[in-house]
Amino acid sequence: MILRGVVVVVAVLGAVGAPGVAVAAEGGAQRVCKVGDKRLTELSGLAATGDGYVVVNDGSDEASHRKIFFLDRKCKVARTVSYPSRPRDTEDLGVAADGTLWVGDIGDNDQSRDTIGLWRLALGAKTPQLYRLAYPDGPHNAETLLLTRAGTPIVVTKSVGAAGLYEPAGALQAGKTTALRQVGSVTVPLTGTSNPFGLPGRLVITGGAVSPDGTHAVLRTYADAFEYAVTGDDLVHAITEGTPTQIAMPDEPQGESVAYTADGTALLTVSEESDGKPAVIQRYALAGRPAITSPPAASPTAAGPSASSAASPPAKPKAQTVANDSGVPTGLIVTGGFLILAAAILGAVLLRRRR
């Protein structure tokens, strides 16, 4: 009876959608190209370059899958880069303002890792450098890596409800473990977008990206993307305090990645291989978004946060708020929130890897 009551409340609130959040995609998903390479079956990270795409699989048992793959515009593998040691669970990647590629080795389904890793591949480099980091409050599972224009990496946890935002507390150093500090938290709005995991698929963050000019950032769930406007490279403030714009991404097989196109006019996604069918990169046009021709220059970057960022004191966690203009009584939303979390816990097993 309790579970049935939870489902009823969830159904009511799910039908309401995300109050105060606009939808800003033009025409839904458009197919870009099919990823036919048999090594690319568990795609979890995606980034766009001037001549194609970069992708990574999540933690795979096959050595041939544990590489950084560079694709051409037709989704054919143009080259690969190997890791000098075995990664644990690569879940996301991003391209910094100076062209440096960062891969987030941050997955931890069992929440048992003492450290997570960031792999840094500089322009022209043949081998990525590993930097280890540790959470201040115990292990977390995460699938989202964001990069500020100044070069600071931000990890967003895959937590039900409020997800934590963490950044390095000091400069990254090869061969040493750098402490992370929590700088905020975010809860994405609840929507009714259809996805293979139902309610739990709408409550956890599975990927993110920053636009080439740094003026926007996006977080995604298995169902939707939520875009935030960024002012002055203050990515944390934009996510924790801003009201996002929703871009529905219904019924992607297992959508865990999101990226901006090289000109910033659209979002790109790719799912893991589903039912033996190759993954497909999809494009969601952003309404009224002008093309980026010459992104503004970023501050000098290093292998870690800027000096000013490292010296600033830890910020208190902040939860994102979304205006309630849906007409639903606030008491129902609050009560329903607790029930939604209960339902999410009961359904969390659905979010385990199929492997």
Rank of each mutant, 00 (worst) to 15 (best):
137 D>R: 12
270 V>Q: 07
256 E>Q: 10
210 V>L: 02
237 H>D: 14
33 C>V: 02
341 L>H: 15
90 T>E: 10
270 V>T: 10
18 A>R: 12
2 I>P: 11
13 L>N: 07
275 D>A: 14
242 G>M: 06
73 R>A: 14
260 Y>N: 00
110 D>C: 01
5 G>P: 01
1 M>Q: 13
38 K>Q: 14
140 H>W: 03
106 I>C: 09
122 A>E: 14
184 G>C: 02
232 G>P: 01
255 G>Y: 13
89 D>W: 02
172 L>V: 07
11 A>R: 15
110 D>L: 04
316 K>N: 09
115 T>A: 14
355 R>C: 03
188 V>W: 07
37 D>I: 04
111 Q>N: 12
12 V>T: 04
143 E>K: 06
107 G>H: 03
105 D>T: 03
142 A>I: 05
299 S>K: 13
328 V>M: 04
268 L>E: 08
59 G>E: 10
300 P>D: 08
106 I>W: 05
243 T>C: 01
144 T>Q: 01
150 A>P: 11
187 T>A: 14
263 D>V: 08
66 R>F: 03
224 D>P: 02
114 D>M: 07
297 A>F: 05
5 G>W: 11
213 D>T: 04
32 V>C: 08
303 A>E: 04
261 T>S: 15
321 T>K: 15
258 V>N: 09
343 A>H: 05
228 Y>Q: 03
126 K>P: 00
189 P>L: 08
35 V>K: 06
66 R>Q: 15
275 D>K: 15
306 S>Q: 04
314 P>F: 01
25 A>T: 10
136 P>F: 03
134 A>L: 08
25 A>I: 04
137 D>V: 03
129 Q>A: 14
135 Y>S: 14
23 V>K: 08
23 V>G: 11
81 V>S: 04
150 A>H: 05
283 R>C: 06
33 C>T: 05
231 T>Y: 01
198 G>N: 06
21 V>S: 08
313 P>Q: 10
14 G>I: 03
50 G>Y: 13
122 A>P: 03
249 M>K: 05
269 T>F: 09
249 M>W: 07
234 D>G: 04
350 L>G: 08
142 A>F: 00
346 L>T: 13
347 G>P: 05
5 G>K: 02
221 T>I: 09
14 G>H: 06
338 F>A: 12
355 R>Y: 09
3 L>M: 10
129 Q>W: 02
49 T>V: 07
254 Q>R: 05
75 C>A: 10
20 G>F: 05
317 P>Q: 00
298 A>V: 03
287 A>S: 11
219 L>R: 00
162 A>L: 12
282 Q>H: 14
100 T>G: 00
73 R>Q: 13
323 A>G: 09
296 P>L: 11
161 G>S: 09
153 P>M: 00
13 L>R: 06
147 L>V: 02
261 T>M: 07
281 I>N: 10
342 A>C: 06
342 A>P: 00
316 K>P: 00
31 R>A: 15
216 H>P: 00
332 L>S: 01
